Structure formats: C-alpha cells, structure tokens
Amino acid sequence: MLQLLSVNYDDRIPNWRTQSEVLSYHVLVLVTDGKVKYTINGQEIIAERGDFLYIPQSTLRSGDTIPGFPHQKYTVLIMTEPGSKLGIPFLDRGEFIRFRLSNLHYLQRRFIKLFEEMRGGRSFRSYIGLGLTQELIGLLARELEKPEVTPAKMFYAQLVKQYLLDHYREHVEIEQLGKLIHRSPNYTTALFKEVFGQAPIRYMHQLRLHEACRLLLHSDMTVADIAQYLGYYDPSYFFRMFKKHVGLSPSEFISSGRTEDLPQLFP
C-alpha cells in the first residue's frame, strides 16, 4: 500500500540544506532548475535541471546548496508497507536512482498539479493527491523502461528541438526538419518521438500554445493578434486548437487567470 506524506517545492531557497539522516520514508525529487548536491550513503551526487532522483527508505541522505547555482525542485515523500511489492520496478528494488527525463515539461506539470492539490484546503485532497501520486509514479516507471538513447540520436533530436524553439512562430514542415539533420521526414519524426515522447510538429504547436497562454494573461494583445503573432493566420483555427488542447476557450482561459488549475497541454 502506498501512502502520500507530503509534497514540497523549493524555489531557490538561499543556503538550503537538509541534515544527514537515515530516511524513514521514500523521496521522489524532480530538479527543474539549477543544481543541488546530495550525499547518498556517503556518495556525492550533483543533480541538475531535468534530473529525477528516487531516494529509498533507509538511505543515509543529506543535501546542500551549490554556491552560485540556486535551484528549484519538487520533492514528494511517500511510505510503503515493509516488504510489500507494488509492481513498480524502481520502488520494489529499493535502490537509489538518478535519471535524466526525456519529457521534462509534461512530468513537471504533473508535479505542479500534485503540489497545488496538496497545498490548498480543498475537499477530498488526500484521495486526489494519492491518485495523482500513483499516476506520477507510473509515468516515471514508464520513463525508466525506455531504452537509453544513443549520444548521436540525442544530438540530432536536440538540433531539431532547438530549431523549433527558434522558429516555432514560423511555418515549419517536417521536410525542413529532415533536411536539417540530413535524414528522411519519417526518420526525423520517429527520432524526435523516441527522445522527447511526441512528434516535432506537435511539439511546435505546444510551444505556440504555451506562449499564447502567457500572452493572453500578461499582454494587451487581442486573440486575433496573438493568433497571427504565433503563425496561426486563421483565427478560427487558432481558437479550435486552443480549445482542443487547453480545454478552455481563450476568453475562458483569461477569466480563469490561473495556469496551475488548467488541464495539462498535450497530455
């Protein structure tokens, strides 16, 4: 049986430190920015943005800030019955894990959702929090099952990703991305999905819609202006895309004013 104890968010806390102790619970850690140092059973570990750590019960653990590298991270504390098997390999093995996530953004949003749920005083939060924790653990276990990506594949996938980050407001076709890495369109799509868990054009739309959310809340641009700015020259198409993937219309999104309460984009 799984029990959720607490969910914490450390946001660049000056001189953050946790004392050396033998844990009586399991800890899930997601580092979302900066670097943080842990000492696990006497071994020094430096965790960076995108790293997931599983620190099992009975581990001798301490943690410390790295000067000049303020960090942000989520920590989830859980308990399991001694000797119980949950069918989750990394929990059942009970060994320390440090793993670089390929789909950081999506998993970060799930940590945020769990944190927000447990922070408030909403009814039934313990039940909902436990369900979100189980979902999160399942997603992490699935990530850990993925075969290791070769350095060459990671290099080409990163080239495509950076191109999309630089040009997501422009008209981009998969043929262009294939030419960028001198590979076929089908190979390029498969490669990107293997590394980042989604097709490159889908990722491009994700970038556009996240920017649309920011602009809707923090600018005076109209919906039509935002659509054109982001490369959607048909405002009705932008409206449909936004409604489909965010779950709200642009006007409903503006009225909500709270990104943490929204459904995850591109689940």
Score class of each variant (00 low, 15 high):
Leu136Thr: 04
Tyr168Ile: 06
Gln19Asp: 14
Phe52Gln: 02
Leu207Trp: 05
Tyr237Ser: 11
Glu116Thr: 10
Thr18Gly: 09
Phe111Gln: 02
His105Ser: 10
Thr18Pro: 00
His205Phe: 09
Ala152Gly: 02
Asp51Gly: 02
Ile201Asn: 04
Gln57Pro: 00
Phe99Arg: 00
Gly63Asp: 10
Asp234Gly: 02
Glu48Met: 10
Ala190Leu: 10
Thr39His: 04
Ala224Asp: 15
Lys37Gln: 14
Pro70Trp: 07
Thr189Gln: 06
Thr189Cys: 04
Gln198Cys: 03
Ser184Pro: 10
Arg61Gly: 00
Ile45Trp: 10
Thr222Gln: 08
Lys161Thr: 09
Glu145Ile: 02
Lys35Ala: 15
Gln162Leu: 03
Thr18Glu: 12
Gly138Lys: 03
Lys35His: 12
Leu265Arg: 03
Leu216Pro: 05
Leu2Ala: 02
Met118Asn: 01
Asp220Leu: 11
Gln158Leu: 13
Tyr232Asn: 06
His71Asp: 08
Tyr229Ala: 13
Leu216Phe: 09
Gly121Phe: 13
Gln198Arg: 09
Glu21Lys: 12
Gln162Val: 00
Leu23His: 02
Gly247Ile: 08
Val22Leu: 08
His205Val: 09
Arg110Tyr: 05
Leu30Pro: 09
Ala212Lys: 13
Thr75Pro: 00
Asp11Ser: 12
Glu145Leu: 14
Arg12Lys: 15
Ile66Asn: 02
Pro89Phe: 03
Pro14Trp: 09
Ile112Lys: 08
Thr133Met: 14
Leu77Arg: 14
Leu132Ser: 04
Leu130Trp: 06
Lys153Phe: 08
Gly138Gln: 06
Cys213Ser: 15
Met118Val: 04
Thr39Lys: 13
Leu5Lys: 13
Asp10Lys: 03
Arg142Pro: 00
Tyr232Trp: 12
Ile88Ala: 01
Glu148Pro: 00
Gln228Arg: 15
His105Val: 10
Pro82Met: 09
Asp225Glu: 15
Leu86His: 05
Glu173Gly: 07
Arg100Thr: 09
Ser219Gly: 05
Tyr232Glu: 05
Ala141His: 05
Ser256Arg: 15
Lys113Cys: 04
Ile88Gly: 02
Leu130Asp: 10
Tyr106Leu: 14
Gln162Tyr: 01
Leu248Tyr: 15
Gly247Trp: 11
Val36Lys: 05
Val29Asn: 12
Ser126Met: 07
Glu252Asp: 15
Arg183Gly: 00
Leu91Phe: 09
Arg240Glu: 14
Gly68Tyr: 12
Ser123Pro: 08
His167Val: 03
Asp33Gly: 11
Leu139Met: 07
Leu191Glu: 07
Phe111Gly: 01
Arg214Asp: 15
Leu216Met: 14
Leu139Asn: 02
His171Asp: 10
Ser6Leu: 12
Leu132Tyr: 14
Glu95Lys: 12
Arg240Val: 10
Thr18Cys: 05
Leu101Asp: 02
His71Lys: 06
Ile55Lys: 08
Pro263Thr: 07
Lys193Glu: 12
Leu132Cys: 09
Gly83Val: 12
Ser84Glu: 15
Lys161Met: 13
Leu139Glu: 06
Thr259Trp: 01
His245Lys: 12
Arg17Asp: 03
Asp51Asn: 13
Arg258Leu: 11
Ser58Trp: 04
Pro250Val: 03
Leu101Trp: 01
Asp220Ile: 05
